[in-house]
C-alpha cells in the first residue's frame, strides 16, 4: 500500500491565532520605521505558526509592486507586500528547499545593496579592464 492510498487526510490548515500577533508586530515596526528610520525583522521560522497560519499571513500582507530574485547559494526571493516597506524574504538552499523566511520592515532590504569592499574590488577590475582596452 502506497502512502497516498491510506485514507487519512490531516488538516494542517487550522488557524491557531498566532499569525494575528505577527501582523501586530509588523504594524509596530512600520510605525517605528516612519518615526525613527529603524525598521526590523521578524523571523517567521522562530514563531509557532501552523502551515495554515503562514498562508493566512501571506494573504493578509498581499503583494506589492516589487519582486526581486537573487541567486546566492540557492535561490532567494524578496517580495514587496501590499504595504510599502514591508518585505517578505524567502531563502532556499541549492536543492530548492526553503531554509529561512523573514518579514523585513525597511525602505530597501539590506541584502540588496552592494558591500563597499565588493565595490572596491569591482572598481579595481573595471580599472584594469579599461587600462587593457586603451
Amino acid at each position: 500500500m502506497a502512502l497516498p492510498d491510506i485514507p487519512v487526510v490531516a488538516e494542517t490548515g487550522a488557524l491557531t491565532g498566532n499569525a494575528r500577533a505577527v501582523l501586530g508586530e509588523v504594524e509596530t515596526l512600520l510605525d517605528g520605521l516612519l518615526r525613527t528610520g529603524e525598521g526590523g525583522i521578524v523571523d517567521i521560522r522562530g514563531l509557532p505558526l501552523s502551515p495554515g497560519d503562514r498562508i493566512w499571513l501571506l494573504e493578509q500582507l498581499g503583494k506589492g509592486e516589487v519582486e526581486i530574485h537573487l541567486d546566492i547559494g540557492g535561490r532567494s526571493r524578496i517580495l514587496e507586500t501590499a504595504y510599502p516597506a514591508v518585505w517578505w524574504i524567502e531563502h532556499c538552499d541549492e536543492g530548492g528547499h526553503l531554509i529561512s523566511e523573514f518579514i523585513q520592515v525597511a525602505y530597501v532590504p539590506e541584502l540588496i545593496s552592494a558591500h563597499p569592499d565588493d565595490v572596491e574590488s569591482g572598481l579595481e577590475h573595471l580599472r584594469n579592464r579599461n587600462a587593457d582596452l586603451s
Binding site: G17, A21, G32, G39, G46
Partner: peptide
C-alpha cells in the same frame, strides 16, 4: 481565544530572543 493565545506566544517569542530587545 486564538488571538489572545497568539499574543501570549508572541510575547514569549520576544522573551526568548532576549538580546533583540526590540526589533528596532
Amino acid at each position: 481565544a486564538g488571538a489572545v493565545a497568539g499574543i501570549a506566544i508572541s510575547v514569549s517569542n520576544k522573551a526568548r530572543k532576549g538580546a533583540a530587545k526590540t526589533g528596532h
